[in-house]
Structure formats: structure tokens, C-alpha cells
Amino acid sequence: MSERSVVIAGTGQVCPVAEDNRSIAEMVLEAVESALSDAGIDHNDIDSVVTASVDIIDGLTASNIAVTEVVGAVMKPETRIAADGLCAAIHAACQIWSGAYDTVLVVAHAKTSMAPFQDLMQWAMDPIYLQPLGVDFLTCAGLQAQLIAAGDPGAERRWAEIAARRINAVSDNLSLTEDDILSSPILASPLRRDMCAPMGDSACAVVLRADTDNKDGRPRISGIGHDLEPHGLGDRDLRSWSGLKRASNRAYTMAGIDDPATAFEVVEPSCLYPHEEQLFLAAAGLDEKANLSLSGGLFSGHAPIVAGLSRLATASKAIEGIDGKALAHGTWGPAGQGQAVIILEGAGA
């Protein structure tokens, strides 16, 4: 690995809400100002910007034009990634490792309240064979969950228990039970409404910086990996996330991690449904003892594209000042087609 370390110098998140009345640019402004303030820098210190957004969610082609000014990209190199924000962070880290830039701002946004999300996601499916049938991401998740549940009669109750735990972790005022989750309506069998992370509007910004001596003690990126599976559900084995297995193995090799099950203080996956936690643990080589989504993960509100970058920001804050490792995960596409992993290493107190 390069001797040039990449550290998470600052983070800023707009907490997901069901409907944020501000414009996309205003939401991004809050996240960027917060990240720059956390890093103790301003726009003049940023060499390059990497944004993550998806046109169809914004109802706008070249969706980065909505945020060009507010991310400070005017007269600067800007790259837009149309995938999860964690991929944008990987791209930004590579820009720094290559020596091209020293300080890179990574920004992701999604305002899902603007249109029926699953209707939009039909447009992310194959236009000849799947769009006309009305297949969306939720349909694909239901097919994957059912495949895993077959022959496992305890799966639904176990998933309901996981969903209840995540929802209860988000709010002190909630104490849902498995039965509460199992009494919510079916959306795409066997997935019920309360097994699905609620959609939200959100933005997240992360400042990555080259650091040779890491004098600030910020967590550094010690491993990266991303991977894609085929688009068609029939062309892959939906019983596992093999893309995540390859992505995490690349990241573990780079970070020098031999035993992932005991490696991490904090694990922040982008799981929208409890069956995805099961897929995540198996593919990432983790077990039930992993410190997973302790603050509820995406059950606090799922803004696609933002999700992975927000996991990175949350994981980074969790190990700031401690001598421990964290894993952040992002996914995009139907049934976990795209997968990305970043490993962070704390610098100690």
C-alpha cells in the first residue's frame, strides 16, 4: 500500500428525514459546511471534488449540476459517480494515493421524497425485459428474501427481531417487538413494511486528506474494495452476496486483516432489510457478535447514494481517538448488485 495515508479529516451529515422542505443544494450546503468546519478548513483548501448522485432520483440529467456551486466545484476538478457514495469516497482516496490531489471533498445527496421511489427504480431495471413487467428494487429484494427464507422456518421471526432492534436503536421512545413487525403489512413477501428501512432525504459530505504523519489522529483508510455482480437476477446466485465477498476480501488484503470476525470495533453496513444483514455478515466474513449498526443503521432513514457515505462518516466518528478498526459498506442496484467496502483504522487517543 502507498506510504501516503488518506485520513477522514472531516464529516458532515444531514440526518435523514422523510421529507426535507429545502432544495437539494440547501441540504448539500449544510453537509458541506459541517464537513469543512469539522476538518477546520474552507473551500480554498479543497483540491478536487467527487460527488455521488443519480439522475433519475433527482429528476434531472447530469444531477451534479444542481450542486456544482455549493460543493465548491467551480473552476476545480469535479468527478460525478452515479453509484453509492462509498464508491465516490474510494475514487477520492485513489486520487490522493495517486498523488494527483492532497485534499478531496466527497459529497452525496438524494431527496427521495420528490417522487415514488420504487416507481423510479423500475427505470433502473432492464428496459426490454423487466421495466415493462413492473419489476422494481423492492420486488428484487422480496425475491432474494424468499429464496433465503425457503427451508428456514425461523427466518421471518428472526428478521423481525433484527428489524425491531434496529428501529428501537434509532429512537429511545420506541420498543417494538417481533410481533409488531410481523403484524405490519406485506410489501413484497416475505418483506413487511416494518422490515424495510424507511426512505428519507439526506446529504453527506466527507473530507479526505493526504497525511504523512497523521498529526490530527483522524482515522485513516487502510483498505478499499468494490465489485459488481451481473444485473439479471437469474444470472447470479441470490443466496449470497458474492460481490461483497470479493470487495471485502480486496479491502481485507489491502488492510492486512486475516480474521475479519475479530477485527472491528464498529461495523456500519448499508442494509435495507434484515435478510441483507444475514447476507452481509456471511459475505464479509463476520458473525452475530459483530458490533453492527449500533445506532440503527439505515433504519434511521435510507437515502440511497448517501447511505454508504453516511456509513463511512458514522464509522469514522465512532473510532475517532481510539485504537480500533471500522468497516463501512455501501451497496446499490437491485438485490445488492453493486458492493463497496472501506476499512478505517483509528489512530488512538
Partner: peptide
């Protein structure tokens, strides 16, 4: 595999023939 989406109908993964490909 299959999934029932109330109001939208049901979808399935179907294997066509012995060890054949799978269609959604």
C-alpha cells in the same frame, strides 16, 4: 423464488428445464 406485492401482483424466478437458466 417468488414474491407477492399486494396491488401489483406476484413475481417469480423460474428455472426453465433441468439445470436450465433462470428467468424473472
Amino acid at each position: 423464488s417468488w414474491t407477492d406485492c399486494p396491488g401489483r401482483g406476484a413475481f417469480a424466478l423460474i428455472q426453465l428445464g433441468d439445470k436450465g437458466p433462470i428467468l424473472l
